[in-house]
């Protein structure tokens, strides 16, 4: 099947590399200032080299609108930056692709958190799929795990470590006695935290992921405004010591209680032997189900290849379901 990739940064390039020899053909790519289109398939090593050398993946003056109007793809892969407020411009791009009867796979949290129900209805109407496994917890197959793996269960509660940056900072504070500012600086130096870490440390990124899970697999209808959010930026070392004395520690936990329609993100005191206590940038999600009991998923929540893994899983799912010619 033919893919158009919108966004050619860490994830887009990681995906392009991971797609070699998978049978998927990349016919278009776009970054913020340029695009390249070839209905017969682009020369990906050449596009990657050009991006590295010039900062452009294709020609200026060409953009995602041209990719859409070319129609030369079966699946649109949207991996441009997340806009949590409106989901734009990715939301419009995704809407257009679905309206054209194209499948969509994305790692971009904005459009899914802002407009999942609308996009899903449009996809259903057009008989196409929208895959968004990569939007929550990177490589961890939480969407398909809940939707297929635990189908038939009622999820009573979901708790998760959904932000690798916060988990890294709290792990370092506990293990090394670093203060919050010291641990944040270290996370920045290592590239785990962005230049502006607000969305991570204030718990907003984790909250967006909860909104996605609540709306897409837990049958809820919530927005970011419905989430009670507390970040980790005022956690003290004394708090970690007091927790430690009880055999516990502090982690930023996202919580969904579907029965109470309650969604919140907050630092919590958690026993050290709890399965959610994972170290470093790992993500973990634990669900409590009526039939299965407790099930915990752990894995890499970010990085080009872990994210590409989740995108590839969605792509393969679509190919298995729709590509009868293959």
């Amino acid at each position: 099947m033919r893919l158009a990739i919108i966004g050619f940064g860490a994830v887009g390039q990681g995906l392009a590399r991971a797609l070699v020899e998978t049978g998927f053909v990349i016919t278009a790519v776009a970054d913020s200032r340029s695009a390249a289109i070839n209905p017969d398939g682009l020369d990906i090593p050449e596009v990657l080299a050009r991006k590295e050398k010039t900062g452009l993946c294709g020609d200026t003056g060409v953009g995602s609108a041209d990719i859409l109007s070319s129609g030369a793809f079966d699946i649109l892969v949207e991996v441009s930056p997340t806009n949590a407020d409106t989901g734009e411009p990715a939301l419009s791009t995704i809407r257009s692709a679905l309206a054209m009867g194209k499948h969509v796979v994305t790692s971009n949290k904005g459009p899914i958190a802002c407009a999942y129900h609308e996009l899903k209805a449009l996809a259903d109407q057009k008989g196409v799929m929208i895959g968004y496994e990569a939007t929550v917890a990177g490589a961890v197959p939480i969407v398909s795990g809940l939707r297929q793996g635990l189908a038939g269960n009622t999820v009573q509660s979901l708790h998760g470590i959904l932000n690798g940056t916060c988990n890294y900072i709290l792990t370092r504070m506990r293990d090394e006695g670093l203060t919050y500012p010291q641990a944040l600086q270290e996370a920045r130096d290592l590239g785990y935290a962005e230049a502006d870490p607000t969305s991570d440390v204030k718990g907003i990124d984790a909250a967006i992921k909860l909104v996605i899970l609540a709306n897409t697999v837990l049958g809820m209808d919530v927005t970011l405004n419905d989430v009670a959010i507390t970040g980790i930026d005022s956690i003290t070392l004394e708090a970690l010591s007091l927790a430690e004395a009880e055999g516990a520690t502090i982690r930023l936990i996202g919580e969904i209680l579907p029965g109470k329609n309650q969604v919140r993100v907050s630092p919590r005191v958690i026993s050290l032997d709890h399965p959610l206590v994972v170290d470093g940038t790992l993500n973990a999600i634990s669900v409590c189900c009526d039939l299965a009991g407790q099930v915990t998923f752990i894995g890499k929540g970010a990085g080009p290849y872990p994210t590409a893994s989740a995108i590839l899983a969605d792509l393969n799912f679509i190919r298995d379901a729709y590509d009868r010619g293959a």
Binding site: H159, T230, S234, I235, A239, A243, A248, I250, I253, E255, S266, P267, R268, V269, I270, S271, H274, P275, L276, Q294
Partner: peptide, 9 residues
Amino acid sequence: LILEPIGGM
């Protein structure tokens, strides 16, 4: 700021 415990299994 209040840090609540999270229940076990």
